[in-house]
Computed example of a mutant assay.
Amino acid sequence: MTEGVVNRRTLLRAGAIVPAAMLLPAGVALAHGKNRPVLTHGVQSGDVTADGALVWTRADRPSRMLVEVSSDPSFRHRRVVRGPLLTPETGGTGKVRLRGLVPGRRAYYRVVAEDLDGRTRSEGVVGSFTTPPLLRRDVRFVWGGDVAGQGWGSNPDLGGMPLFAAMTARRPDFFVHSGDTVYSDGPLQEKVTLADGRVWRNVVTPEKLKVAETLDEYRGQFAYNLLDPKVREFAAQVPAYAQWDDHEVTNNWYPGEILDYCLLGLR
């Protein structure tokens, strides 16, 4: 895979959090602290086509999603795409489809959340992806699934989920997520004693301590994975094509299956 002028890993580390003053139009102030929206779980891209892609983020309060897109990592030449409102009804999340991109080129995007009064904005968070070429050429991709399942979550003794850092280091064009994106039916324990006496530790959240029964608990399954900086770095640099398996719902679930919640103990 051909690399761009700027190394993507260096770009993310040096500029993933971009001062919003760099992209503020006249009349928009840069607030600080609690008066300013925050993008809580980074950015992601996916479903990339030859001329576009979906971009996702989440904010900590009602706000408007704005996305700058450029073929230049410095964003000297850019256009702004106005996205949806980020509200409690969507868990603060939103997505935008970018269109009109050049096939076979690296695209850089920068997301901010703008307060509903239009006066303040969050810091910008940068991501990037490569659009597929129109002509045949070699590509590099990574494949995986089963995230934070079977009792094994983000281990602070290992720095979280180190596999995502290993995949980022391969500099893939895209990631095929082959299901079990979360284990909504698989609670985590804070500590698991292994057969040899060692202890595996999990980062835990209230949502991951029990089977997901409510919409907020279900959203918490996905939010858990994005607590890990390695996962957020990977998501910002590598677009995904994702499918479901069964544990997004429950073990051995299949599309169209009608679940008996009484048997599942979810009354």
Rank of each mutant, 00 (worst) to 15 (best):
E114H: 02
W152H: 12
D216A: 14
H32N: 06
E3R: 15
N155V: 00
L135P: 05
V48Q: 06
L163G: 14
G265P: 12
V231K: 04
D180H: 07
G4H: 12
D246F: 01
L135H: 11
K208Q: 14
G91W: 06
A16W: 13
F75G: 05
T87R: 04
D51N: 12
D51G: 11
L188F: 05
D260N: 15
F75A: 04
P229E: 11
D60N: 15
Y108N: 04
G27V: 10
G145F: 02
R8Q: 11
N7T: 09
S178K: 03
D180S: 03
K210S: 11
G160P: 00
A165S: 13
R136Y: 03
G186D: 15
M65S: 08
L135D: 13
R267F: 01
L209I: 03
P103N: 01
S128P: 04
D138L: 14
P229K: 03
L134M: 10
E190K: 11
P132Y: 03
Y254T: 14
W253T: 01
Y183A: 07
Y183K: 04
A53L: 09
R97V: 12
G92Q: 04
A195H: 10
L158Q: 15
S63Q: 03
P133N: 02
P25F: 02
Y109M: 02
D60H: 03
R82Y: 10
G91E: 03
G153A: 02
V147A: 10
D196G: 07
R78A: 13
R119A: 09
W200K: 04
V112Y: 09
Y261D: 10
V5P: 01
P172E: 10
T193R: 12
R105F: 01
Y254G: 07
T131W: 05
G144P: 04
Q243G: 11
C262D: 15
L158A: 15
W200H: 14
R13F: 04
T87W: 00
R58P: 08
T181R: 06
D246T: 09
R219A: 06
A59I: 01
G27N: 14
L135K: 06
V96C: 07
N251R: 12
F141D: 09
T57N: 01
W152G: 00
Q237S: 07
V112W: 04
A16E: 12
K210V: 09
S45P: 02
N202D: 02
R140K: 15
G186P: 00
G4K: 02
V43H: 05
T90E: 10
M65P: 12
H177L: 08
E233D: 14
L134D: 09
T181I: 14
Q189K: 13
A148K: 03
P103A: 01
P133H: 00
G42F: 02
F222G: 09
A31M: 01
R198V: 00
V238E: 05
R140V: 13
L54W: 15
P84M: 11
V55Q: 06
M1D: 15
Q243M: 14
E248Q: 07
G127R: 03
T90R: 12
S71D: 13
E217S: 08
W152C: 00
D51M: 01
P187M: 09
V28H: 02
